[in-house]
Each structure stands twice: as C-alpha cells, then as structure tokens.
C-alpha cells in the first residue's frame, strides 16, 4: 500500500526534519504514529497524502512510484486517501454537512445520496443537531468530528489522521476510534498520529514511532499479521 525507502524531507534550506525513513505498510494494516511534539509526525503524514514531495528517497503508493506520477494523475490518487488534518481544515463558509459532502461531490456522487449519507455519518459522530452549523459556531471537538466525518465519507483506501482525538474527551475519542476500526474492517489502511496513550493501549496496533526525524516500527503486543 505504502512503501518508503530512505526518504528524507527538509523545509527550505533547514536541516532535514525526516531522515532515512524506510517502512512498508501492507494493505489493510492499522498503525498508530507516535513521537514527541515536533518529531515530524505531521510532516510524514503530509508526504503520505501527497501534500509534499520528498527531498530524497523513494515513495511508492498504491503500487505507483510517486516520482513518476504526473500532476494530472494526482487527483485520482488523492481521492482514495482520507485525511484528518491536524488543524481540521474545514471550509468556514460551508455548513458541517457541506464540508462533509465535499469528497462525494468531487467524485460526482448523486446529490440525494450525498445528503442522506452525510446526514447519517454526522449523526453517528454526534452532530445530528448541527448539520447546518458553520464551523466557526462549533466547538473544537465538534469541528474535529466534522473533519473526521469528512475523511471517512467516501470510504478511502487509505486513511491518515493527524491527532484526530486531540480535542475530545476519552469517551468520544473511543467512539471515533471505533469509526476508524470499522473502516479498517472494510479494508482501509489506517494510520493515526496520536499522543493519546489510553487509546494506544486500548487498541492493540503497531506503532510508527518518530524520534528526532528517524522512524522506528514498534510491533503490536499481539501481532495479528507479520
């Protein structure tokens, strides 16, 4: 699904924030990503959701060598990736429902299905009473749930979540994690960057641990696959 080989990333002329990153995520896997603040979790996710090109190294995504993918091919690949941005990245002038609908509308889904589907998922994350609220009128945790609903709405092949439970209490965090688990059971490959130790303990998955720009893969305590 994803393969990194000796990938390095630097912003401008500064020293590399990611160094010699090599790992492979098999299709249908579920990983947490951990590391201190500033360790480079968001940067690594940005490489995965094709927001940045690496400064060096090889990235293979969905079997494609990313160095050879043209600009015109990117939208098709990106539509198969669901992203929960660390800062949510909701569009302020759109209602919760219209924000969640974006990926479906981009894919040209029928409008009636889109509305029904988005309503359902917003109910699921506990925002059934806020379908038409603008993000600015929602709390941080509510905005985060809208962002999560948007990332999973079109059942992506790859789901990348950057601190998806940073602004909610553990109860809601647990519920959101179950959403990702459900998606995972349907075959989606999931990577979740988080500081939340309780969640990591509750769900037994391997970690990608970042420390000072280097990556170490920590296997699950009870590995289900090799």
């Amino acid at each position: 699904m994803i393969r990194f080989e000796n990938v390095g990333l630097r912003y401008g002329t500064e020293s590399e924030v990611l160094r010699d990153i090599s790992f492979t995520l098999p299709p249908g896997s579920f990983h947490f990503m951990t590391g201190a603040s500033g360790a480079g979790k968001s940067s690594l996710l940005k490489l995965m959701y094709l927001a940045h090109r690496p400064s060096r190294g090889l990235i293979t995504l969905f079997g494609r060598d990313m160095a050879r993918v043209t600009r015109a091919e990117l939208p098709e690949m990106r539509r198969q990736i669901g992203v929960v941005f660390q800062d949510f990245a909701l569009l302020d002038h759109l209602s919760a429902l219209d924000n969640v609908a974006l990926p479906l509308r981009m894919g040209g889904a029928p409008e009636a299905d889109t509305v029904a589907h988005c309503t359902e998922i917003l109910r699921w994350v506990g925002l059934g009473n806020h379908l038409h609220a603008k993000p600015s009128t929602l709390s941080g945790g509510q905005q985060q749930r809208v962002a999560i609903a948007r990332s999973v709405i079109n059942r992506p092949r790859l789901l990348l979540a950057d601190e998806p439970t940073g602004n909610v209490d553990d109860g809601i965090g647990m519920r959101l994690l179950y959403l990702f688990e459900e998606l995972h059971k349907l075959g989606t490959t999931v990577v979740i960057a988080t500081h939340n130790e309780a969640l990591i303990r509750r769900f037994d998955h391997p970690h990608l641990h970042l420390d000072n720009g280097r990556l170490q893969v920590v296997p699950a305590r009870n590995p289900r696959w090799g």
Binding site: Y49, A51, P75, M77, V83, A89, P103, M106
Partner: peptide, 15 residues
C-alpha cells in the same frame, strides 16, 4: 489555501 485544500482532497483543476 482553499484551492490547495480542495486539491489535497482530490479536486481536479477542472473542478
């Protein structure tokens, strides 16, 4: 920024 975000979500230039 919005255009960038739409691109990241898979919007084509035509969209």
């Amino acid at each position: 920024h919005v255009v960038e975000l739409l691109h990241l979500m898979g919007a084509t230039d035509r969209y």
